[in-house]
Design a protein around this nucleic acid. Structure first.
Lengths: 216, 216
DNA sequence: GTCTAGTTTGACCGAACGGTCAGACTCACG
DNA sequence: CGTGAGTCTGACCGTTCGGTCAAACTAGAC
């Protein structure tokens, strides 16, 4: 599927502008793919290099040949994912139709819970434990972006084009309701029983929820 | 292994047939309190017995004297908490006023996110990683309870006393929206900035959200 | 005070972990 | 073909972890 990561991003941390060989591209990709699987399923501390190496089909020293440490693999995953994760929020257009923009954001986030559940769980694991390896980005980049979009939403409300809701909590509610289906997938499936796609039922429910919430 | 002098009597549960000494009561309490702190903050794998022992003010062998293993401490926490966690859902009264019952459930869950965030994160950590130490209870007890309450809600909808929403996803939405403030506390506080109580702002927002969602 | 069941601990163990290293192997290119 | 940069690995290291054990200590009923 289309969840391969671009390995180019991770060579630029040091000054070396060396071009990547074919083998480097392939193996870094294999490592990051395996690491996403393992980190998202067991958390940082619960994941082992041997597990990652085995799943990537490489030896442990070979994994350490491409990344200097377990931390570095985790950091590479987080960094590479943050932009993807926030892109739909960035895409909210102040010039667009308010309810349309917010509904689109919510639907895109729900899609991402279906298509990228491992990435969602990776972040969830990190935030749950106090974001010890991400702290900086949360208070700066994330807050800046959310505050900016909150201002946009406030403007819409002032114009009477949206119901008067707290914009920050509105954004939180979108995160909570969509990511829940990725992060708590085990619980949701246990309750719904087998053979049902949880997100299929979630989509119309969330559509109705936000339609009713946002109508002025 | 002869376990004739093994003090593994888990008398803190309903099954108690042997009396606990005063010291046992105190020390088991200290261990469970410390373990809740450590497990909720670092996950099962990320927590260490030394950490728990240090926080409980006991030596590691002494901790192992009261609980046979790290797993057993974790299991004791989960088991003791499951009932508390689901009590508000159980309390939904089929004979009550539908919107009142659901709003009360939501508000109680939000209160629990404020007052018992560690417990919320303990469950979140467990479910996030596929509930490897809880699997049974999810598919049986939890599903049974949720299905039962979903039937109640469906009845209310059929009577026209609630908007027609999927009852299972309604319950999921309550879980997601309330537990988000405990589980993702770090993120929420990073976005809102310091000096604000997130749940104070969440309460009126969620009141409005569910009021609008449930109105027939 | 005596005795015993209950409690506590320092020392220790094997396994698992993240990481290192010297050297062997492979690939691309002249 | 030869060659050097790039790739790979078995063996190994120091640390940390969960857990054990014998022995020492304590509480409290008699």
């Amino acid at each position: 599927m289309a969840d391969d990561l671009d390995p180019r991003d991770f060579t630029s941390d040091d000054d070396g502008k060396r071009p990547l060989t074919r083998i480097q591209k392939v193996n870094r990709g294999k490592i990051l793919e395996a690491a996403l699987d393992v980190f998202s399923a067991h958390g940082f501390r619960g994941a082992t290099l041997d597990q990652i190496a085995a799943e990537a089909g490489l030896s442990k020293p070979n994994v350490l040949y491409y990344f200097p440490s377990k931390e570095a693999i985790h950091a590479a995953l987080l960094e590479g994912l943050l932009d993807i994760w926030l892109a739909p929020l960035r895409a909210i257009d102040p010039a667009g139709e308010p309810r349309e923009e917010i509904m689109r954001y919510m639907r895109r986030k729900l899609e991402m819970s279906r298509e990228m559940p491992r990435e969602s769980r990776l972040f969830a694991n990190e935030v749950l434990q106090g974001a010890p390896r991400m702290g900086a980005g949360l208070s700066t980049d994330l807050k800046t972006l959310v505050d900016e979009k909150a201002k946009v939403i406030e403007g819409w409300i002032a114009e009477g084009r949206l119901a008067p809701v707290d914009p920050h909590h509105l954004i939180f509610s979108i995160w909570a309701l969509t990511q829940h289906y990725a992060d708590f997938d085990t619980q949701v499936r246990a309750v719904l029983g087998p053979g049902k796609d949880p997100i299929e039922g979630a989509a119309p429910f969330l559509d109705m929820l936000f339609a009713r919430l946002l109508k002025p």
